[in-house]
Computed example of a mutant assay.
Amino acid sequence: MKRICTICARGGSKGVPGKNLRVIAGRPLLAWSIWQAAQTGLFDAIAVSSDSEDILRAAEAAGAQVLVRRPADMATDTAPKAPVIRHALLAAEAELGWQADVLVDLDATSPLREPADIAGAVAQLEADGRSCVITAAPARRSPYFNLVELDGAGNAHLSKPLPNAVVRRQDAPRCFDMNASIYVWRRSAIVGDPRVFYPDTGLYEMPEERSVDIDSPLDMDIVTMLMERRHGERPA
């Protein structure tokens, strides 16, 4: 069983400029994902895809074995994620000269994961025979109980009402918040049909404290605090 880990880190970021190279707990943000992947001992290669030469140099310094230069049309704000990951996989395989059986993509902006989370998600996919496994945390809000939408007249309604009203959140079906941390695919799925949700997509549950994705300066502050609490101000 051969496995490749990809990490896709675009140079442009409007929410938090330069976030992928921002130093957190003694390492550039991007380097934490490379370190976590290496710690699992699962991967035959770790590849980083970027449109930024600075990011690619930092990736090489952090231990990435394959550097993938991302085409400009895949580095826009509107570029879908799955085709970018597919491109990174195929480019890495072309350079390495072999094909993977399993692809794992780690989001560089979700560094609170542990290596054990990566291993757990991979083990779930390989045991269940699924096309894809995503990671998520229990949702704070429920579309059956306290998540609402506005209709065309501006009236608030439950997003997903049930025939029998749910009067306690604990009685609502369990819901999860995708944390964008870990995606695991079988090669045949991501190459043949690059998307996240297949009929058999599985979910690996992670706790809320390991599920913050950096999209805003507030997220950066929260992640920095939690990473420094866990690892100190210098790399572990």
Rank of each mutant, 00 (worst) to 15 (best):
D151K: 09
I134F: 05
V68I: 11
P143I: 13
H157A: 01
R130T: 14
L96R: 06
C132Y: 05
V84L: 06
H87Q: 09
L158N: 05
R130E: 15
R113Y: 14
V133P: 05
I134A: 10
G154T: 12
W98D: 03
N155D: 14
D117F: 01
T109C: 06
H157M: 09
A116E: 15
A92I: 08
A92W: 02
E114D: 14
A136Q: 09
A75F: 00
L103W: 08
P161A: 08
G120Q: 04
A79D: 05
A137L: 07
E126Q: 07
T135N: 03
V104C: 07
R130I: 09
T76Y: 00
V133H: 07
D107S: 15
C132R: 01
E114P: 00
E126W: 04
G97D: 11
G154C: 02
T109E: 15
A100T: 08
H157W: 10
D117L: 03
A153R: 12
A119T: 11
E149Q: 14
A72H: 12
Y144A: 08
D128Q: 15
A127N: 03
P71K: 00
E95D: 13
A72Y: 03
W98T: 01
T109M: 13
V84S: 10
S110K: 10
K81F: 13
Q124T: 09
A153V: 07
V84N: 05
A94P: 06
I134T: 09
A88I: 06
T109G: 08
P138E: 09
L106D: 03
E149T: 14
A116K: 04
R140T: 11
I85D: 08
Q124I: 10
W98C: 07
E93Q: 07
L89E: 11
R113T: 15
L147H: 14
R130F: 14
T109I: 14
R141S: 09
P163R: 11
A137M: 13
A94C: 13
L103R: 05
Q65S: 12
V102E: 02
V122Y: 02
L112C: 01
